[in-house]
């Protein structure tokens, strides 16, 4: 892993195999015992972590009646057709409201995290690689910002936005999501560790401007950190519930989480929403799971940089 090898030069051999050769003194039976115990613990908890997701997957292939009426953790004979039927209902219900929510979420979380990452990276980079007056003061302000959670800001933001009559707009959710003090913190740590000062000097000698050097050279060196910042800001925006809850009245502006929440609270009056909530929940977690799996290589090393410090 990059972070590990960057902070601590390891022996050329793989760390895992190096450790596996370890205890020769103890008998094979004892190590068999602890091996099975370890596998048992991990196996039991794998069930704990994956069963709810499995249940969601299976239930999304059932009709409202089948969710309670059939074997709960296995498919029915018509599962595939029911699943596509549910999907069709999901995207057509209420004039395609769900599709709109997905698009809104993509705007809030996707665009928001993208722009937010660039903004945070520039700031963290400047704090790490330039000496200027007020640098420590700015960093301290950023650090205290890390300790202020997004939910604590929702009401103050609502009060400000209602002052300028911008509640219940896309901007009310999008603009505040751009700010990520944790991203600045991570970018600063990573820029300090991965962008050598000599390289910047060399770029200066070549006559490259500071801003150009950042975008062409430094961002490449900071890539794992940038992916990490992007992913975690994406998740933070995707998960932020209080801000859209308090800002938005118009269903057409909802992100997908708030939309599903709204449907879920109407189930007792409109029971046919239940299968839609279930299949909608499945559809809404897929983008995140795909993003995390696809970008795993980057964030698992970037996460180390944040954890080590």
């Amino acid at each position: 892993m990059t972070a590990a090898s960057a902070t601590a030069p390891q022996q050329p051999q793989d760390a895992d195999t190096g450790r596996a050769n370890g205890p020769r003194s103890r008998g094979p039976r004892q190590s068999m015992l602890s091996r099975s115990a370890a596998m048992l613990i991990m196996g039991v908890f794998t069930l704990y972590f994956l069963t709810p997701i499995w249940w969601l997957l299976v239930s999304s292939t059932k009709t409202g009646g089948e969710i309670t009426g059939s074997a709960p953790l296995w498919f029915t004979a018509e599962s595939l057709t029911t699943f596509f039927g549910n999907l069709g209902n999901l995207f057509t219900y209420g004039d395609g409201l769900f599709g709109r929510w997905l698009v809104n979420s993509a705007i809030y979380a996707g665009l928001g995290a993208l722009a937010g990452t660039v903004i945070a990276a520039m700031c963290g980079y400047a704090l790490a690689k330039y000496e200027f007056r007020g640098r420590e003061a700015i960093f301290n302000v950023v650090l205290s910002g890390v300790l202020v959670p997004a939910t604590a800001l929702a009401l103050p933001l609502f009060l400000i936005f209602s002052e300028v009559n911008l509640t219940n707009t896309l901007w009310a959710v999008f603009l505040p999501s751009l700010v990520s003090p944790f991203g600045v913190y991570l970018a600063r740590i990573y820029a300090a560790a991965s962008v050598p000062g000599e390289l910047l000097e060399a770029a200066r000698l070549d006559g490259s401007g500071e801003v150009r050097t950042f975008f062409t050279v430094s961002t490449r060196l900071m890539a794992p950190a940038l992916v990490t910042i992007f992913l975690f800001q994406f998740v933070a925006i995707w998960n932020n519930f209080f801000l859209p809850l308090i800002m938005l009245r118009d269903q057409a502006l909802f992100p997908v989480t708030l939309g599903l929440y709204a449907w879920n609270s109407q189930i007792s009056q409109i029971p046919e929403l239940r299968p839609l909530v279930i299949v909608g929940a499945l559809v809404s977690i897929l983008p995140l799971i795909i993003a995390f799996l696809g970008l795993q290589r980057f964030w698992s090393s970037g996460l180390g940089a944040g954890g080590v410090k």
Binding site: I53, V235, A281
Partner: peptide, 8 residues
């Protein structure tokens, strides 16, 4: 499970 939002 970290990919599952609190609401979901």
């Amino acid at each position: 499970p970290y990919a599952v939002p609190g609401v979901i």
